[in-house]
């Protein structure tokens, strides 16, 4: 089955033919978006994290066909007019990555957490990021980055 599907991708409408065998990562690759990338292929590492209708999901476990009509956001959509998202900047400041392969997934999950919880505890940070793996093990820096992003955001909010 191939189907012509339409969806919003980082706020812009797109439409394309998608085969039943394609997952969301395959579909996004065809849009030249490589930030969501397949690694474990089992939804366990989080490298393929994207947001569908406002919630993060594993792109490798999402049927391409199911993107039809959806609001799809990828890491590439976080940067607004050349300005990094608060989480992206915090990851740079904290040195929260090494090879960078898992980083988009962590950034997406962290930004989702901060959208839900104003001042997450370390346990909440860990629970939210427990489904993302970093083989370089930048975990201490990642926790520090998320903490710093939350603090920075609440400081902004108070201004």
């Amino acid at each position: 089955m191939r189907q012509h599907i339409s969806f919003n991708l980082n706020g812009r409408p797109v439409s394309m033919d998608v085969g039943a065998h394609e997952d969301a990562v395959d579909v996004l690759r065809r849009r030249n978006l490589f930030g969501a990338r397949e690694s474990c292929g089992q939804g366990l590492c989080g490298c393929c994290t994207i947001k569908v209708d406002g919630v993060p999901v594993s792109g490798c476990l999402t049927l391409g066909l199911k993107l039809d009509g959806a609001e799809v956001e990828t890491v590439e959509g976080l940067e607004r007019e050349g300005v990094l998202d608060i989480v992206q900047q915090a990851f740079i400041d904290a040195g929260a990555f090494q090879c960078g392969f898992c980083t988009p997934g962590f950034v997406m999950m962290a930004s989702d957490l901060l959208a839900r919880v104003e001042a997450p505890t370390d346990e909440q940070i860990k629970d939210h990021l427990a489904g993302n793996l970093c083989r370089c093990a930048a975990y201490p820096e990642i926790i520090a980055a998320v903490r710093a992003a939350a603090e920075k955001r609440s400081a902004h909010a108070q201004v």
Partner: peptide, 8 residues
């Protein structure tokens, strides 16, 4: 499981 699994 994890957040992404719980979402779907």
């Amino acid at each position: 499981a994890n957040v992404r699994v719980r979402n779907v």
